[in-house]
Design a protein around this nucleic acid. Structure first.
Length: 271
DNA sequence: AAAAGCCCCTGGATGC
DNA sequence: TGCATCCAGGGGCTTT
């Protein structure tokens, strides 16, 4: 579910409120993707220094380590002033003197992992190989084009892979390719410099727009204050198979790439 | 090295 | 309130 905009909206929704808090206790529900990696009581007494984001990971700096949080497909984080009794899908609570940060994740593809720091092998393993941050100045058209030239896979799958540029998931990959007028099946190495430049701008624009709208709420995404996002109402192609293209009226087509659905306009995205 | 498949898991929608 | 099937925002791991 959560792509860069949803993760960032979540971060913005609780980072300032939890910064400076002291951890009182940790409660675990059912297992998530990976074990926490430490005894829950080891976190008690630690201070929350801040919350950063890298790709779709949230990095919570603690006085004695680092907590890596990932929302997987169905996860959402919420900071409660007074948390209600945990439900069957509430699998992690970080109880602090400034509220309880709770991970709700029905599918349990999400994760909360403790590491001693970013150089801890546990953290490195998860963060190494991640591509450039799309909203960062280091993401620039020329380098993007050069990286794409190395890849034979389809441009949609290269965007999703996250090793060239991070944060673009299944919704925003389709949306960015539409905005750039590029067919999702086109081999990444066959993009022209002009196409790569358009796609670079499109990725930034689409993610930025989604951020402003609070992300996309397809089923269950909520930000840290329990509010839904509204980008899905703005989607040009995602989940619009058969509906008329908002630009040219041609019915939107769907196909599958690497077990994921892709949506595009056959006219606006000729190649 | 890169690419393609598989799998983790629950729940909602759809079809019979 | 039956049962089977398919699909869903991710991504690490194994196999080609």
């Amino acid at each position: 579910m959560p792509e860069l905009p949803e993760v960032e909206v979540t971060r913005l929704g609780f980072a300032d409120r939890i910064a400076g808090a002291e951890v009182r206790a940790v409660r675990l529900g059912q297992p998530l993707r990976w074990p926490l990696g430490c005894e829950p009581r080891q976190l008690a007494g630690q201070r929350v220094l801040g919350v950063r984001r890298r790709g779709k990971y949230l990095l919570m700096d603690l006085s004695g380590g680092l907590l890596l949080l990932h929302l997987g497909m169905s996860g959402s984080l919420r900071l409660h002033d007074a948390a209600p009794a945990p439900g069957k899908h509430d699998h992690f609570d970080l109880e602090t003197d400034r509220g309880t940060l709770r991970l709700h994740d029905p599918r349990r593809f999400g994760a909360v992992v403790f590491a001693l720091g970013e150089e801890d092998p546990v953290a490195r393993k998860l963060l190494q190989g991640l591509g450039v941050e799309p909203l960062d100045i280091f993401f620039e058209p020329e380098g993007f084009w050069r990286a794409l030239r190395e890849r034979r896979a389809s441009i949609k799958q290269v965007l999703l892979a996250g090793d060239v540029v991070v944060g673009v998931g299944n919704i925003y990959a389709s949306e960015a390719l539409f905005a750039a007028g590029i067919r999702p099946t086109r081999s990444a190495r066959r993009l022209t410099r002009a196409q790569a430049t358009r796609l670079h701008a499109a990725v930034r624009q689409v993610l930025q727009r989604a951020l402003e709208l609070g992300g996309s709420t397809l089923r269950d995404f909520r930000n840290a204050n329990g509010e839904s996002g509204y980008f899905q109402l703005d989607a040009m192609v995602y989940d619009r198979e058969g509906q008329p293209c908002r630009v040219c009226g041609t019915p939107i087509k769907a196909l599958r790439q690497g077990q994921r659905s892709t949506f595009f306009c056959p006219v606006c995205q000729p190649a």
